[in-house]
Amino acid sequence: MKPEPKLVRGTPLDEKALKRGKTFSVTYEPRLRYGWDTGQAISRYLAELKEGRLIARSCRKCERVMIPPRMFCERCFRPTDEWVYVKDTGKIFTFSLCYVSWDVRRLKQPEIPAVIEIDGASPGMGILHVVKKIAPGKVRIGMAVRAVWRPKAKRIGSVTDIAYWQPIKN
C-alpha cells in the first residue's frame, strides 16, 4: 500500500516569520467606484420605501405576491402583473444574534439580523433586515414585528429607510 497523500507541499507562514522579514508582502488598496442602476422593480421599491411604504409585485399565473418586487416571475418566467402594497408588519422567519460586525470587529451587544416574512405578501416571502428594541434572549421565530421608519426628512430611498424592526406588543 502506498502512503497517502504522498506529496503534501506548501510552506505555512506565522507572524514570527513575517516579522523576521523572511518574506515580503506588497499591499494594494483598490479604489474602485461603481454606480449601480436600480432598475425598474427596485427603483419603485426604493421610491416607496422613501414614502414609508412596502410594495410587492404579483404574478397572476402562480398567484404569488413577491417581495422584493421583480419585473418577471422567476418561476413562471413571464412578466409580473401588478404592484401590490403590503404591510410594514411581519413575522420573524429566522434570526441570529451576531457578535461580529461586517468587518470582523467584536460587538458587545449583538446585532439581530432576521428574515422577516412580510404581512400581505405570499407565505414565505421574506426580506433581510435587523431587529432591535428587544432583549436578545427573547427573540423567537414567529414573533410579530413592525417596521420602525426613519424620520421622513432622513429617508433616502434605501432599505435603511426602515431603521429596524421591533416586536409588536400584544
Partner: peptide
Amino acid sequence: HITEQPLKPNLLWIFAL
C-alpha cells in the same frame, strides 16, 4: 448590492439564519 448590502451583513449572518 442594492437591497441587502446597505444593511452591512456578514457571511455569518446567512449561515446562522
